[in-house]
């Protein structure tokens, strides 16, 4: 476990800011307790100071996981967000998509979001923007990237893709070995 280097922090924040923009400040600068981002075996974890101080006396080989896993660095040093970060993304998301009940299942199996399943979308969402996906009852289901801007989606066919799938809560079952 170690703090992120400057380069790593930059890559990480760039990816995170696609979803929550400037709201990353609320993750770094919290009023309740100091929280940290720490790297452990290429995965970035978000944890309170108390937890970190306890974990520090556990060896690197013995430590499996701690805090909330935000994602991992790939071998080519890009950052991949995991579904486990959804709680924080949903809390601070700038752009949101709501999908109809009949589209929930297909999304949770890892498919892209079609125009037919689109319930609502944040006004003036640009193209290729990170969005958090909600069910119509405001339960966060995952996140993705818009294929078209809000204006252009109006002209699309019902079978066209509105947003590309990136992660969904179905991964808690499908990828439970590698997720945390």
């Amino acid at each position: 476990m170690r703090p992120l280097t400057e380069d790593e922090t930059k890559v990480f924040f760039e990816k995170l800011s696609k979803y929550i923009g400037r709201n990353i400040v609320h993750l770094i600068d919290r009023s309740d307790e100091t929280y940290y981002f720490r790297l452990h075996r290429d995965k970035v974890y978000y944890m309170s100071e108390a937890l970190m101080r306890q974990a520090i006396s556990i060896g690197r080989d013995q430590l499996i996981s701690l805090g909330v896993c935000f994602g991992k660095f790939t071998k080519s040093k890009k950052f991949k967000l995991h579904i486990t970060a959804l709680d924080y993304l949903a809390q601070y998301a700038k752009y949101k998509i709501w999908i109809k009940p009949n589209g929930e299942n297909t999304f949770l199996y890892g498919n892209h979001i079609l125009k037919a399943h689109l319930g609502r979308i944040t006004d003036d969402t640009p193209e290729h923007q990170g969005v958090v996906v909600y069910s119509m009852s405001d339960i966060p289901l995952g996140f993705g990237v818009t294929a078209r801007s809000t204006v252009e989606t109006r002209k699309l066919q019902p079978t066209d893709i509105v947003a590309f799938h990136q992660a969904d809560i179905g991964e808690y079952l499908r990828e439970q070995d590698t997720l945390f």
């Binding site: 400057e6 924040f13 800011s17």
Partner: peptide, 12 residues
């Protein structure tokens, strides 16, 4: 914290 905020400022 300061370092992180500085990086954030550059990124955003």
């Amino acid at each position: 914290k300061e370092l992180n905020l500085n990086i954030l400022k550059k990124v955003v």
